[in-house]
Write a protein that binds this DNA or RNA. Sequence first.
DNA 1: AAAGGCTATAACGGTTCCGAAACAAAGTGG
DNA 2: CCACTTTGTTTCGGAACCGTTATAGCCTTT
Lengths: 116, 116
Amino acid sequence: MATELRPSQALKLWQQATLDLVRDDEPDLSLRQMAILLTVYLEAPPHTVRDLAVKLGVTKPAITRALDTMGRMKLISRKRDVSDRRNVLIGRTVEGVLYVEKLADLIVGTAKELPR
Amino acid sequence: MATELRPSQALKLWQQATLDLVRDDEPDLSLRQMAILLTVYLEAPPHTVRDLAVKLGVTKPAITRALDTMGRMKLISRKRDVSDRRNVLIGRTVEGVLYVEKLADLIVGTAKELPR
DNA sequence: AAAGGCTATAACGGTTCCGAAACAAAGTGG
DNA sequence: CCACTTTGTTTCGGAACCGTTATAGCCTTT
């Protein structure tokens, strides 16, 4: 066991961080997009559409669509796998790194101000 | 200062909890809907459309639409304010309480398993 | 090389959401 | 009583998203 968090603290943390994300100028990511983004940035590559679909428990077209949108936002990159050209490898981008770092700061900052 | 959370822990917490929410059968709430729900359930009433719009930094129609959807899901209730009939008071429901409690459990559970 | 399986994506019909603008109802102040 | 403000909702055109189904390209296996 690592981080102790009481239910009321957990909810306040979630509320504040969510509020901050919504108030931000940038268009909100959906929960699915958030899950994809964080999985790609926190877990070891390679990441494929299929893997992500299984991991999130959604259909592959849903992943493709989310990647379309996030690609337009430059939050992720797509590249054909040269060793098996059926696969598409999802990669990180500079903008994506910045987004994730900003998210981390936001959560850490919110947690700091939680009542004890 | 209350809760110590390193950036990598914060991100893993957010990823795991988001993943759990996505994998859930229930349709995902958008970030806006989540922010509204938690604000209504964590902060003291009364809650009006206008207050929520200001608090989230979005337009009033956006709040109305979110309330429509969440009302259909029975996560919130709407009632005319008798003392000023222009206002609509947003209230809690049994289903909403359950949803919020489940969310709290999910976050607390995830936090418990975070690497130290 | 032909068949079949796998990968990702496109297409389809329906729903939801967006911001902007218009609107109806209720309150306020002259 | 009559403008004027305030509140919430509706409408509009456009975009994103959903799951399902259909395709196209690649790989494997025989």
